[in-house]
Design a binder for these strands. Structure first.
Length: 358
DNA sequence: GTATGCTTTCGGC
DNA sequence: TTACGGCCGAAAGCATAC
């Protein structure tokens, strides 16, 4: 079963201030470059009727809503996280196994508690929807299926406040007519490549030669596309561990290739990352930088240290070196810059003992 | 040949 | 007409070790 909270950020804002419920609500990530630069994070269904979509520039959303009384709000991520954690507790309590996928989505393995009965699973889904509504005042859309791939697509079938059950015998006819990019893992790039092969729907994909798919997309994605389009998926529902990387990114006041200006920004990002590391008692082994260029293309560079550390000075030094080298070879100006640490390990005990020993 | 590690890109939310 | 965030994980592609 997949539970997906409807238009989550905007719905939470509606709950916080019910007077906006009957208007278009657009939750935005303001980049700070100009008054209105940034993108739409989430919009409620009223705003969507005007063509407002996630990822759309704010200025374009305003154009779509010209002459309409609409509400534009900045994201309040800490608050959404709080609400999400309470909902997560409700959901986890209704599952044999649980997997939180993002801030607004989770897989629930319920086979054992419903003894494999899809009717009972549907009843449980209704119960969960009721509990989330009564306790948190939020609606969600639920998909029930024989595996994660099918449950996910089922949840997308009816939104908001939907419940879609796809029984094992119904899987292939349910999937067949849907566009190929309904499958998780098929984004814009993969959809374009599939289209070039004449594959438009999941049904086209299911009937396409597996060997060809593997030749075009590699073994992993190729076999996945074949199996998933045929409704076959045996990925387990399981709790995810701690984050494997921590990153921060910021938009520059203006596009530039100037090292000093960029380091001023990345030093702040390094400080934030360091605070997060200290809070979680982690050290890092790899340091990466990312630059979103003027043309919105993305470049990354990274390097691995000789040993893990939690030293913010080491982090800043590595970031500076990476940018120094990168900016030297770049012809186009950077718009946004970011820092990422990975290879996270608990604590620093071993390293400290070694350094103090030598 | 197989396993493992590192860098980079892609996709989801 | 254009317009444009901030995260995260997965995996491809490559190099090196065994």
């Amino acid at each position: 079963m997949l539970v997906d909270l409807d238009y989550f950020f905007a719905q939470v804002e509606e709950r916080r201030n019910p007077s906006i419920r009957d208007k278009p609500v657009v939750v935005c990530v303001y980049s700070g470059r100009t008054e209105e630069s940034g993108v739409v994070s989430t919009a409620n269904y009223i705003a969507r009727r005007f063509g407002v979509r996630s990822g759309m520039p704010i200025i374009l959303a305003k154009k779509r809503l010209k002459g309409v009384e609409a509400v534009f709000l900045p994201v309040d991520h800490d608050y959404y996280e709080e609400v999400s954690e309470r909902v997560t507790t409700i959901l986890r309590g209704n599952a044999d196994d649980f997997e939180r996928v993002g801030i607004d989505e989770a897989y629930l393995e319920v086979s054992r508690r419903v003894e494999g009965d899809f009717g009972r699973a549907a009843a449980l889904a209704q119960l969960i929807k009721g509990e989330v509504r009564d306790r948190e005042g939020l609606t969600c859309s639920v998909g029930v299926g024989p595996n994660k791939v099918v449950a996910k697509i089922a949840a997308d079938a009816k939104k908001p406040d939907g419940l879609t059950v796809v029984r094992p015998g119904e899987v292939v006819p349910f999937l067949s007519p849907l566009p190929a990019d309904s499958l998780i893992g098929v984004g814009k790039k993969t959809a374009e490549r599939l289209e070039a092969l004449g594959v438009k729907t999941i049904g086209d994909l299911a009937n396409y030669d597996v060997q060809r798919l593997i030749e075009c997309f590699g073994k992993s994605l190729g076999t996945y596309l074949h199996n998933a389009s045929n409704g076959i998926d045996d990925e387990p529902v399981q709790e995810r561990g701690e984050a494997e990387s921590i990153s921060r990114i910021a938009t520059l006041k203006e596009d530039t290739l100037d090292l000093r200006g960029i380091i001023e920004v990345t030093d702040r990002l390094c400080k934030e990352i360091h605070e997060s590391l200290v809070q979680r008692g982690l050290s890092f082994k790899s340091v990466g930088i990312v630059a979103v260029m003027k043309d919105l293309s993305i470049r990354t560079r990274s390097r691995t240290l000789e040993s893990p550390t939690d030293d913010v000075g080491v982090l800043r030094g590595a970031v500076k070196e990476l940018f120094e080298r990168f900016l030297g070879e770049s012809e186009i100006e950077a718009r946004r810059v970011g820092v990422r640490v990975s290879g996270l390990v608990k604590g620093m005990e071993t390293q400290r003992r070694l350094t103090s020993f030598f």
